[in-house]
Write a protein that binds this DNA or RNA. Structure first.
Lengths: 245, 245
DNA sequence: TGCCGATGTGTACGACGTATTCCTGTGATT
DNA sequence: AATCACAGGAATACGTCGTACACATCGGCA
């Protein structure tokens, strides 16, 4: 995201988010941040994150490739706008009494959001972006933990632990799904079969006996949702235990 | 990673990993998978992951841009090689009796590894790669949980929960560090000050009172290691509790 | 009415991944 | 010792990308 250089006496120009909320400044403008963000998200959802190029975006907006640069400093700004836009769909319960329920909902919704917009996993920096919509979610999460009087550091760390787990999980899930789809495999079994020749060498070395045993015995190999909630509940259990709440 | 199409009667060519371990096939060859991987890692460490282009790699190897394609199917293969190479540094204890110690060491070492090679966070698909070195690590992790007789699914899910948390955390950390460095900020305070004009608008809206309160009260804001171990211990606590070990 | 800043256009550059074709030296075969 | 198939590297080329820069145009205000 473009950040105005911090020089003496420089007039701070309104931030991306401030401009996002201002009404389209002049009727003349056919391009607005909202239109740009919407078009970019649409492209990403329909054709994948890699398809979001400034040129593709421009044609979708019916405009020349350079036009968007009047509103957005570059691709970084664009990604930030996109992340913020889809993050608006997150709606956390406002029940400050039930920290576990709120955090659980936060995790489940975030996972769904990322699976619905797999391109959110493409930008590792997206994790760190503090956009308005993401801050609103964080606010709810913190509020839920705020009821029990805990030190600020623990509260922050707890929320971040959940966030880290969710992002890591969703990214894995998306990466595996993309990998399957790119190769046209439609089921877990088909994938394993196709991968077998590749794995045969590694497994054949006999270096990974335990791995092999578990890979053969596991019965919920393809149940990502179960795996996710299992891990999530571990994290939540741990938080509750460690914070004594 | 290139995968041979699964057609009838086709001779399966040796996998990337099989070729990696074979000695350089002919003395003629000046390029080997080992040399390629080493050069690519060196570039990534010194100049950042984005600097790893087939052309930059070629000049480093003293060779034309297309030469590497004789050994590697493309950039995907190259990334896989790079990830595998740095992952060899992971050395987990072989103490199958102490599952928590092993998983904790796994997590801490992985974090260090990613921080030392920040480009590992660039490729979300890297999370899913099953390279020899990464499988060796997984083997140790599974072995540690193997002692207590648990069902295969829980063991897998527990290991993946730790992995997800670690990757999510490390990515956040790396993203924040990169963001700071890109802007030349050297301390947390300097970063917050520089970001202040941007944040002022969002905070100024008064929509995030709890966030604001916690941001002001927290005293370990810049202690990433503490935050990491806090979250990690939550995850481990939860696993122990949920699996009854 | 005439100017000025905001908005979109046109053109251009350098870098990227990689398909394709060609060349050259090497080890195996006779 | 002469030949030859072929593997490894070189050369060239194509299409695409992000974006710098200079220009044109239009609306609102003096």
């Amino acid at each position: 995201m473009a950040v105005a250089k911090h020089e003496e006496g420089e007039v701070a120009e309104p931030s991306l988010w401030e401009r996002l909320e201002q009404p389209a400044p002049v009727p003349r403008a056919s391009l607005t941040l909202e239109r740009i963000a919407a078009a970019a998200v649409e492209i990403a959802d329909e054709e994948g994150g890699a398809a979001v190029t400034m040129r593709r975006l421009a044609t979708k907006l019916g405009v020349t490739p350079m036009a968007a640069y009047r509103h957005v400093s570059g691709k970084d700004d664009l990604w930030a706008l996109m992340i913020d836009r889809v993050s608006r769909d997150l709606a956390l319960p406002d029940d400050a009494g039930d920290w576990r329920g709120v955090l659980r909902s936060y995790a489940l919704q975030t996972r769904e959001l990322m699976l619905a917009h797999p391109w959110t996993a493409l930008m590792p920096t997206s994790i760190v972006l503090l956009t308005p919509a993401r801050m609103a979610v964080a606010e709810r999460g913190l509020s839920a933990l705020d009821a029990h009087d805990l030190d600020a550091d623990s509260v922050m760390a707890a929320l971040r632990a959940v966030t880290s787990f969710v992002h890591g999980s969703a990214q894995t899930e998306i990466a595996m799904r993309d990998y399957q789809e790119r190769n046209g495999w439609t089921s877990g079994d088909e994938t394993r079969e196709a991968l077998a020749p590749q794995m045969r060498y590694l497994i054949g070395t006999g270096r990974y006996p335990v791995f092999e045993k578990y890979a053969l015995t596991a019965t919920r190999k393809d149940d990502r949702a179960w795996e996710f909630t299992f891990g999530l509940d571990c994290v939540l259990d741990g938080i509750g235990q460690r914070l004594g709440i």
